[in-house]
Design a protein around this nucleic acid. Structure first.
Length: 558
DNA sequence: GCTAATTAGC
């Protein structure tokens, strides 16, 4: 018997190394009559669940007649890890129907799955199940509940699950601290951090990650620096999780010098820490530095896999800043990494070239894509629209439909935007009706804004007003704002007053709207109204920023 | 065997 176990174990590790076909392993298990041993079944389910071979996992699971809690938990976990939540949940129901009772880990696992699938109703159901099965005071279940509720934004319920436990353990404290951070309640999270230490519990890396990730906004800079000091004192700064969290925190504060200092102090740089630094520079608009560190990273991590998501986000930064040099360099990296056939990367490249003024390159990449999805089409439609090539945008739209792809709300934004750039009112009207009637895409604020602009610029103010008035639900101030700006251009003072009244009713106190209205008044020579508005603005402390032009390189006031 | 870090293309 012992020999059989030894043999299987050595085979297992060999399989892990050489990745031989699983069928042979199954044959071996059958031969050794180990298929009914829950210990080995659990091991196999765990290992092959990771590699995603669920046919095999199921075969082993079904072949085992004496299912232990461990075996059940490992198959539920395997499905949940693979984000196959429905299968995880139905396994759990299967467990409830059978003889093996779920334990705290089974519940913790499905609770987490509820959180990851944003299923609040099911989460409440499992919470009930936890209480009914006598696990209401169990720390494992309650930490899972705290995490799940807070990640779904239900802080109060998370707090309730926390307070059930009279003596919270470290995990429990950590869950609550990161829970408060998730919900933007960094003050509560800090209070918990102090409280746990008062009660004699020492924080670990998880605690600090939870605490740090909640610190955002200029008010928290001092706190952040204090927590950073705590990390230095207790030598948590070298923990890779804590370190990249600190880098990210300083990036949020727009203190890239501090972020860079933390980064420089990290011992083991991994992809996450690099990404935290690079995307930090992108978010702060320091594209040169972003591209410098990106280059440095590519030189350092040789051999290891490059993260396509990171490249896509740096490409987006190049597109936004219309930095063609950076864009071309990134394109080179894409080619070197063999990522050119990645759909996400290609769309980012198309967008970058279009926004940098090289429509031809954008088109070429699009044409050469072996597989196109809705995002690729949306990107090229938008790019063409940007250049005033509306009819080509429409052609792409038809091609997209012919390819059997479903247009979404972004598709219609891109199309309506193309109409705006070319002043195609009739096409815009038609698209707006088709999007809901034919494609069941509900128009959003941006779609209304585009159509209102189209109508307003064509002088169709009555229709624009009707459109806004007939839209369901409360009207976003941006839509009235779009109408008002058209009134300003067209000099329609009656409609301008209507739109402005609506805007001020909704409490949109943007100085720009008042300026627009006052311009319309000025055009009509209604100076008393102009002065009234100006006075109101000075009283409210709303000042118009003086116009500033950067054309020519030196800021010239206009 | 419960809790943790980054980025996500239009």
């Amino acid at each position: 018997m012992f020999l059989r176990f030894r043999l299987l174990l050595s085979e297992l590790s060999k399989f892990q190394q050489t990745l031989l076909r699983t069928k042979q392993l199954h044959a071996l298990i059958l031969k050794l009559r180990l298929s009914d041993d829950p210990f080995y079944a659990t091991k196999i389910v765990r290992f092959y669940g990771m590699s995603g071979d669920f046919d095999y996992v199921c075969k082993v699971f079904d072949g085992c007649h004496h299912k232990s809690v461990f075996l059940w938990n490992s198959i539920i976990r395997a499905y949940a890890r693979a984000r196959r939540f429905n299968e995880a949940f139905s396994m759990f129901s299967g467990m409830l129907r059978g003889e093996t009772r779920p334990d705290s880990f089974s519940y913790a696992c499905v609770i987490r799955a509820c959180c990851e699938s944003s299923d609040v109703n099911r989460l409440r159901l499992f919470h009930g199940g936890v209480i009914v099965s006598g696990l209401g005071m169990d720390p494992t279940c309650n930490s899972a509940l705290v995490m799940a509720y807070s990640k779904l934004g239900l802080v109060e319920e998370a707090g309730r699950a926390f307070s059930v436990i009279s003596e919270p353990d470290l995990v429990m404290w950590n869950s609550m601290i990161s829970g408060y951070s998730c919900c933007g309640l960094s003050v509560c999270s800090l209070k918990m951090f102090v409280e746990m230490q008062r009660l004699g519990e020492s924080p670990d890396g998880y605690t600090l990650v939870g605490l740090i990730s909640g610190l955002a906004g200029p008010d928290s800079i001092r706190t952040g620096e204090g927590v950073h000091g705590f990390c230095l004192k207790s030598s948590f700064e070298s923990n890779p999780h804590v370190g990249s969290c600190l880098v990210n925190m300083y990036a949020r504060f727009k203190c890239m010098d501090s972020a860079q200092k933390v980064f420089a102090g990290l011992i083991n740089l991994d992809l996450v820490s690099w990404s935290a630094l690079i995307t930090g520079y992108c978010q702060c608009g320091e594209y040169e530095k972003a591209s410098y560190f990106f280059r440095k990273m590519m030189g350092t991590i040789k051999g290891r896999k490059v993260d396509p998501i990171l490249i896509a986000s740096v490409l987006a930064a190049a597109a936004q800043s219309a930095n063609i040099g950076m864009g071309i360099e990134l394109h080179g990296s894409v080619l070197r990494c063999g990522l050119e056939s990645d759909v996400m990367i290609s769309s980012a490249l198309i967008d970058m070239y279009a926004k940098c003024g090289l429509l031809g390159s954008a088109r070429r990449i699009f044409e050469n894509m072996p597989k196109k999805n809705a995002v690729s089409y949306n990107t090229i439609i938008q790019g063409l629209g940007l250049y005033g090539l509306a009819s080509e945008s429409f052609r792409m739209f038809d091609e997209m439909l012919n390819a059997g792809l479903e247009p979404d709300s972004c598709t219609f934004s891109a199309l309506l935007c193309a109409c705006c750039h070319s002043g195609l009112l009739n096409d815009g009207r038609e698209l707006f009706t088709r999007m809901e009637d034919e494609f069941h895409v509900r128009p959003k604020v941006e779609h209304y804004v585009y159509l209102v602009k189209l109508l307003g610029m064509a002088g169709e103010f009555e229709e624009a007003y009707q459109l806004i008035d007939s839209s369901p639900g409360p009207v976003d101030p941006g839509i009235w704002g779009a109408l008002l700006s058209c009134c300003e251009v067209q000099g329609n003072s009656e409609m301008a007053e209507v739109a402005a009244r609506k805007l001020f009713e909704t409490g949109a106190e943007k100085g720009a709207y008042r300026v627009m209205l006052s311009k319309v008044y000025a055009r009509d020579g209604r100076w008393s109204n102009v002065n009234e508005l100006r006075d109101e603005m000075t009283d409210a402390g709303l000042r118009k920023m003086p116009g500033l032009s950067w054309i020519g390189g030196t800021g010239t006031y206009s």
